[in-house]
Amino acid sequence: MQISINGRPRELDVDVDTPLLWALRDDLGLTGTKFGCGIAQCGACTVLIDGNPVRSCVTPVSALEGRDVVTIEAVSGPEAEAVQKAWVGLDVPQCGYCQSGQIMSAIGLLKIEPKPDDQAINDAMAGNICRCATYPKIRAAIHAAAKTLEG
């Protein structure tokens, strides 16, 4: 089957029930998207589908006909730039393993809410676990990115 990944149509030779996560990682070599739980609890596998953050570990490739998938490897635009710059500038990552997912969720948030308050951040980021508890820096980086976007 064919799906659109990072703006390109990609041919996939996998069973249709294969979660997008494993198609990305094993078949397309896009390993920036991580596995943490497999049951939509941790957010490590978050990608953007039609601009919205989605857990790729529970999204079968069969559901992606005509949809547009963007991963951490190719995410772009003003929100992505602002978020990633803030992440590096504040040295948010510790082990770093959850951070692709955190960043995708943060980008998704800023796209719909350019100036989120703490509660909006809590709600939007509630699905992303960081076992290293980098949460204070994640919060600070989202606020910093929002400020950049303000111009």
Binding site: R25, K34, T71, P93, Y97
Partner: peptide, 27 residues
């Protein structure tokens, strides 16, 4: 001092064990 690993970890480029690939690899 800024951490040397922050950039790769913020761009999905840091290589963890789970990310290692090889054409002959078996899971």
């Amino acid at each position: 001092l800024p951490k040397p690993d922050s950039f790769a970890k913020s761009h999905g480029q840091a290589q963890f064990t789970i990310d290692l690939r090889d054409p002959d690899m078996v899971v």
